[in-house]
Design a protein around this nucleic acid. Structure first.
Lengths: 110, 110
DNA sequence: ACACATTATCGTATATTTGCGATATAAGAT
DNA sequence: ATCTTATATCGCAAATATACGATAATGTGT
C-alpha cells in the first residue's frame, strides 16, 4: 500500500526533496535554463521553445512556482516568469552544507 | 496521453533531471545524509534509521545507485554503501554553471 | 459590447512511483 | 549440510505524475 510516508521525515529533508522533485523533469530544467539565459522575465515564448503543448507547459510552470523556484505573474493575456534566485541559492546551499563534512574527508570511503 | 517526451530534451537536461529525480524523495535525502555524516561505508543499519520496510529501503538504495549518487557492494549478508562524491560534485557544478550568468546580473529581474 | 490573443484549469488516459509482504539469494556460523 | 542473518527481487495495490484537448478566464483592441 502506497500510503506515502513523507511526513515521517524531517522538515529539511522534505523541503530538499520537494525542490529536487520540481527539478526532476527535463522540461522544467529547460524552462529554468531559458529563464536563466534570458536573464529577465519571459513574457510568453516559452511554449515555442519546448516540445510540449501549451497546457503542459503551464502545468510545469505551476510546479516550479509552487516550490518557489520561479516567480510569476499573469496579467490577462500576458505573463511574466522569472527565476527566484533566493530559492535556488538556498537549495544549493543546503546541499553544500549536507556534504560539507564529506568534502573535506572524502578519502576514507570505498 | 502520457507518452513521455523526455527524449526530446537535451542530454544534459535529461541528466540533471535524472539526478534530481533520485533526490526527490525525503527517504533518499535521509540516506545520503546518513552516509555523509558517517563519512564511510554503511554496512547495514540504514533500515533502522528510516521509517520504512527493508525492501523499500533497498529499492531507494537501488535508485540512488542507478544514477551514480552512491556506490554499493553486497557481499552476502553484508553491504557497503557510500556516497559517490564525483557525481554529486558534477551535479552541483552543472547547476552552478546553468545559473552563473544569472548570479552576476540577478537584479534585472522582477 | 464584441472578437482576439494568451494563459490557466479541468477532465481524462496512460505511465511511473511508492510501499509492503513474500520470496529468493548469498555468505558466515554451528 | 543446515541454520542464521542480511540484502535483493518479485508481485501487487494505491498514489502521483505526465500529457493533451477542451474549455474557462482575463486583459487588449476595435
Amino acid at each position: 500500500m502506497a500510503t506515502h510516508k513523507k511526513d515521517e521525515f524531517s522538515q529539511k529533508e522534505q523541503e530538499m526533496a520537494a525542490i529536487s522533485k520540481a527539478l526532476s523533469h527535463p522540461a522544467r530544467i529547460a524552462i529554468l535554463k531559458a529563464l536563466a539565459q534570458k536573464n529577465e522575465c519571459i513574457c510568453g515564448q516559452l511554449v515555442e521553445v519546448l516540445p510540449l503543448a501549451q497546457s503542459t507547459v503551464s502545468q510545469h510552470l505551476k510546479e516550479l512556482k509552487s516550490v518557489g523556484l520561479i516567480t510569476g505573474e499573469t496579467d490577462g493575456p500576458r505573463s511574466c516568469y522569472c527565476i527566484n534566485w533566493k530559492t535556488l541559492e538556498k537549495f544549493l546551499g543546503d546541499f553544500n552544507f549536507l556534504f560539507e563534512k564529506l568534502k573535506s574527508v572524502n578519502s576514507k570511503c570505498c
